[in-house]
């Protein structure tokens, strides 16, 4: 464990908590893409299959349980509890255009052609594009609530911090995982446009409103 990865995990944790607070406090899921949350649930389920087979640390197990639990709770809030406030018309990204290529790529490019490894690789590739339905929804509605912007900033920062973690681990431990790094770079690049808007607008107290 290193400071970059710890900050990354805390940023990821903060994003999930911010999202839950937004939903619970406003009793609304307006502006939140249910499809992205379903993709994140798929990512966590696929990645944490080893939850019961390989024990890394208490921290690792607790975080995995928390991530899986909260993402399914988020889906419950979107599609059941606050269903009336879910904006399905604007949440229209075709996720099959993500899942099929990512699934194919996981079969072709992985560290080891073994079931658990291919599923892990699938979760890494899927996570790098899982935010697209959410960013697509914001571009369609033309705006994002400030609290949603904070959620996205924390979520984008988490993988950017993981990139720093991988640089550190490369020099400190000789650790290098090309698949995770490439997917992490793609994932972070997808947020760049949003990071720019966040820093130039939200940090100055303005709201993010894209030219519709």
């Amino acid at each position: 464990m290193n400071i970059f990865r710890l900050c990354g995990d805390m940023s990821h944790l903060a994003a999930i908590i911010i999202l839950l607070l937004k939903m619970w406090k406003t009793r609304s899921v307006a502006g939140i893409s249910g499809k992205s949350q379903i993709l994140f649930a798929t990512v966590f389920t696929a990645r944490y299959l080893d939850l019961f087979t390989s024990f890394i640390s208490i921290y690792n197990t607790c975080m995995k349980v928390f991530f899986i639990g909260t993402v399914y709770f988020t889906i419950y809030l979107i599609y059941m509890k606050f269903k009336a406030t879910y904006d399905s018309n604007h949440d229209s990204f075709r996720v099959e255009f993500l899942i099929v290529p990512v699934g194919g790529l996981a079969f072709l490019v992985n560290h080891e052609f073994a079931p658990l490894e291919i599923i892990w690789t699938f979760s890494i590739y899927l996570e790098s594009v899982a935010i697209l339905p959410q960013l697509f929804m914001i571009s369609k509605t033309g705006e994002a609530e400030t609290i949603t912007s904070h959620y996205l900033f924390a979520l984008g920062s988490y993988r950017a911090l993981y990139l720093c973690n991988w640089i550190y681990r490369y020099y400190a431990e000789g650790f290098f995982d090309l698949i995770a790094v490439v997917a992490g770079v793609v994932q972070t690049i997808l947020y760049c446009d949003f990071f720019y808007l966040y820093i130039t607008k939200v940090m100055k107290g303005k709201k993010i409103s894209l030219p519709a």
Partner: peptide, 10 residues
Amino acid sequence: CENNKPHDEL
């Protein structure tokens, strides 16, 4: 460099 077995990151 070796990649991580088992995957020890979240």
